[in-house]
Design a protein around this nucleic acid. Sequence first.
DNA 1: GCAATGACGCTCT
DNA 2: CAGAGCGCCATTG
Length: 121
Amino acid sequence: MTNYERIYAVVERIPEGRVATYGQVAALAGLGRAARQVGYALHSLPDGSELPWHRVINSRGEVSPRAMPGWDGYQRHLLEEEGVELDERGRVDLDRFRWEPPLPRPTGEKGLRRSGSRRRA
DNA sequence: GCAATGACGCTCT
DNA sequence: CAGAGCGCCATTG
């Protein structure tokens, strides 16, 4: 069982009309902070795949630009078809469309918050 | 096994 | 919210 399988499994259960962030999917897939691998896995996704990969977006609620221009527009189109509202800049209001995972993280997260540079940029 | 890569995330400015 | 920087981590060469 590769991590891809887990990622796909998580993406597969994203409800229609909802979106999830890469980090969200990564955490649910057990990859933790390997949000990048989620995108990497989706990139390796074969054509004809029925996975709702278009429901996976970045933390800002925006569709991450990929190598092939135009594909991002396609993703936005798919989201609109599902009822997800996109603003002028093609962004999704995560406060309203973010998928609620079955096991939400406790707000009182332990010192595991070492994410990011944690240091002045 | 090591080095490079990448659909990202978080914090600070 | 947007932009800039550094970090994390699995997959690939």
